[in-house]
Amino acid sequence: MDQMPHILVVDDDREIRDLLARFLERNRMRVTAVRDGRETRRAWTQGHYQLVVLDLMLPGEGGLDLARWIRTQADTPIVMLTAMGEETDRIIGLELGADDYVAKPFNPRELLARIRAVLRRAGEAAERKADHGTQALGFNGWTLEPARRRLLNPEGVEVPLTGGEYDLLQALVERPNRVLTRDMLLDLLRGRQAGPFDRAIDVAISRLRRKLEDDGRNAQLIKTVRGGGYVLAATVEK
């Protein structure tokens, strides 16, 4: 049992909680299912979880607020459950560092595939961190420290990044002077293709530019390639 990934399911719909618990347990996963923020916080102190399945529409403390709290506790992957058409909440959730989303109503097999993909990427990221955790990456005076998942400005002061912003910047820094389309970035970060209205990458790029003091209208560091995507125009040194 200890080798099975432990999944925390947060959803106020009892039928969905029970369905997911049974389905995931049949697929060799441990499951703790809770209905709201209060129960989530209690469960958090009583277990160690490899992934959280989080419904955004919760009574009381909303799913976005709960996702923000989880991000202050750990880098545990989050798969969000959203209602169809909730584009704004989905974008905000991804900015907060959620790793993927599934729109309701959903097929349990699709959710299982997303969970497995996120767990696999989390495991690969942990291996990369173990292998290269001491190697800082320098670019244009800035320093990215994978071991501590932090960004330092040219004066050596840490610049706060959300989980999603850090992952996006790392993807760019690891592929300098290479054009990365939105679909490529989404695939690298989330393991999925962008929907027709998915602006999460564009929003995150804008936030990164502000934090990197890179003028969005005349960006010199993270450049926009018309009809293509984005490119980090800098030399990266380890």
Rank of each mutant, 00 (worst) to 15 (best):
P5D: 07
P77F: 14
L168P: 03
F23G: 01
M84W: 08
F197V: 08
E174D: 14
G63W: 05
L221D: 02
D13N: 14
E127V: 10
L64R: 12
L56E: 09
R217F: 09
A103H: 03
R148N: 11
G138Y: 01
E145H: 05
E145K: 05
V157A: 13
D75Y: 03
L51Q: 11
D99F: 01
M1P: 05
R148I: 09
E87N: 14
L81S: 02
R209Q: 12
L8V: 06
L168S: 03
V34M: 06
Q46A: 15
V102D: 02
E87M: 15
I205H: 00
D11E: 10
E124C: 03
A74T: 12
L137M: 14
L188E: 08
R207M: 14
P154Q: 06
A194R: 13
K223P: 01
V9R: 02
N177Q: 12
A136R: 04
G216E: 10
N140K: 11
L152R: 14
P108Q: 07
A74K: 15
I91V: 15
A234D: 02
Q73M: 12
V52W: 02
R71P: 03
P77M: 11
R28K: 09
Q50G: 13
R35H: 08
D183P: 07
P5V: 09
D36L: 08
H132V: 04
V10N: 13
Y230P: 01
G156T: 05
I222L: 15
Q46R: 13
V159N: 02
D18Y: 04
R90V: 08
L188F: 05
Q170A: 07
E110W: 00
E213N: 12
A136D: 15
M29F: 05
P77G: 03
A171Q: 11
A74C: 11
D55V: 08
M29C: 15
P176N: 04
A126E: 09
R109S: 15
T143L: 11
R116N: 06
L151T: 06
T32L: 00
R128I: 06
L212S: 01
R150Q: 14
L169E: 08
L51D: 02
D13I: 12
Q46L: 14
P196Q: 02
T143C: 10
R217W: 06
G156F: 11
V34R: 01
